[in-house]
Amino acid sequence: MKKGILLVNLGSPDSPTPKDVKKYLGEFLMDERVIDIPYIARTALVKGIILKTRPKQSAAAYKKIWWDEGSPLIVLSERLQNKVQKQVDVPIALAMRYGSMTIKKGLQELVDKGVDEVLLFPLYPQFAMATTETITVLAEELRQEHFPNLKIESVPAFYNKPDYIEVLSNSIKKHLEGKNYEHLLFSYHGVPERHIKKSDVTKSHCKPSDKVECLCCKTPSKAHEYCYKHQCKEVTRLVAEALNLEENTFSTSFQSRLGFDPWLQPYTDRTIERLGKQGIKNMAIVTPAFVSDCLETLEEIAMEGQEIFHEMGGKDFTTVPCLNDDDEWVALLAKWINQWSKASVETV
Results as ranks from 00 to 15, higher is better:
E153T: 15
L243F: 03
E246F: 09
V115K: 05
I196Q: 02
T17H: 06
K173M: 11
L80Q: 08
G305H: 00
E193A: 05
M283H: 01
K63N: 12
E117S: 11
K56V: 14
R97C: 06
L275K: 02
E273A: 08
A139S: 08
Q306R: 14
P192T: 02
I165F: 04
Y188D: 02
K23H: 07
N9I: 02
V212E: 15
K277V: 07
L73H: 02
K64M: 14
R257H: 10
T132E: 07
S344P: 04
R42S: 04
V201F: 12
Y62V: 00
L275C: 06
I74P: 05
I5S: 03
D36E: 15
Y39D: 14
E241A: 14
V345F: 12
A289E: 01
G11V: 08
K229H: 07
G70I: 10
S15K: 11
C322S: 15
I37R: 03
E273N: 07
D36P: 13
K63P: 10
F28I: 11
G114I: 10
D20K: 13
T17E: 02
V155M: 15
G178P: 04
E32I: 13
E273L: 08
L120V: 11
A128R: 02
S154T: 15
T102W: 00
E328M: 13
P122Y: 05
S15R: 09
L333P: 08
V8C: 00
I165G: 01
V235D: 05
L333T: 12
L332Q: 01
L6Q: 03
N244W: 09
A240L: 06
V320Y: 01
K229I: 06
E69Q: 05
M101I: 10
E241S: 15
A95R: 00
W263R: 02
A93Y: 03
E177F: 13
I5E: 05
K23N: 10
G48F: 07
T249Y: 03
N149V: 11
C214N: 12
E193I: 10
F317Q: 04
S171V: 09
L123N: 02
V75A: 11
W263T: 02
G313L: 04
G106E: 04
V34W: 00
P288Y: 02
Y164M: 04
T287I: 09
S199I: 00
I5D: 02
L7K: 01
I280R: 11
Q144S: 14
L168C: 11
E346T: 13
A242E: 14
N180L: 10
D36A: 13
